[in-house]
């Protein structure tokens, strides 16, 4: 299958095996052509779109607790944010600078004929207005998946016939799965007995993090290797 893919897309250098499936990167401009080929080429025959996931890479590789240095203020390191994490749930924090595209869409394709899975990744060029062509014409069930990715991440799908919000409330603002959207949200809702209707107010609960996010340099997981048994 790896060879079939490489011969179908000789210009694409990103095709590689990753765990039990094949990963392939594609630019938004080529997405439709590549996806059509993936579906219609008999040696590939990816007839089903299993899943479509939006990803926001804004804080990738940043932890909330610096572990590379030691000091005698362990606990305060945990409560003072080292980066934009969800530590304070404060939207005022700046997102760390990064040179990789922020938004990416991962398509999981399934070939029933060849019993093979493929992860197709397509990164949006513009962070401020991420646009990716819609694949509805190729896999019809992309419709709701793309609405979901739009709703949660604000990724726009060019050519989608009906790009409405799907999971969030009617009249919701913001895209809740972006990394700069606070976990507890911005507004809370209650029934006001005086006004006799439901009212929205800024959230009143205090943010709280029980376990800080931490990245450990683990020698067992040196890049690309499978973890070894250690005797400790």
């Amino acid at each position: 299958m790896l060879e079939a893919l490489r011969s179908a897309f000789p210009d694409n250098a990103s095709i590689q095996q990753s765990l039990d499936l094949i990963v392939m990167d594609v630019a938004p401009a080529d997405l439709i052509a590549v996806a059509t080929e993936l579906r219609d080429n008999d040696t590939l025959a990816f007839s089903q779109l299993s899943d479509l996931a939006g990803v926001d890479y804004a804080t990738y590789g940043h932890d909330e607790w610096a572990t590379d240095t030691e000091n005698n203020a362990s606990f305060s390191r945990a409560v003072n944010a080292a980066s934009t994490g969800s530590l304070t749930f404060n939207t005022g924090l700046e997102l760390p600078a990064s040179d990789r595209p922020r938004f990416l869409v991962a398509y999981h394709l399934l070939s029933l004929d060849h019993n093979m899975r493929l992860r197709l990744r397509c990164a949006a060029a513009d962070d401020a207005m991420p646009v990716i062509p819609s694949v509805i014409a190729i896999w019809n069930n992309a419709n709701w998946y793309e609405r979901e990715a739009f709703d949660l991440f604000g990724i726009l799908f060019d050519g989608h016939p009906d790009l409405r919000r799907i999971l969030t409330d009617y009249g919701f603002t913001g895209h809740p799965f972006r990394k700069d959207f606070p976990l507890i949200g911005n507004v809370e809702m209650r029934y006001d007995s005086v006004k006799e209707r439901v009212v929205y107010e800024p959230v009143s609960i205090e943010p709280r993090v029980l376990v800080p996010r931490v990245i450990r340099e683990d020698s067992r997981y040196v890049a690309g290797e499978t973890p070894k048994k250690d005797d400790a």
Partner: peptide
């Protein structure tokens, strides 16, 4: 991303 929490779970 190597952390003790998932970076993204879909």
């Amino acid at each position: 991303d190597g952390a003790n929490k998932p970076y993204r779970l879909k």
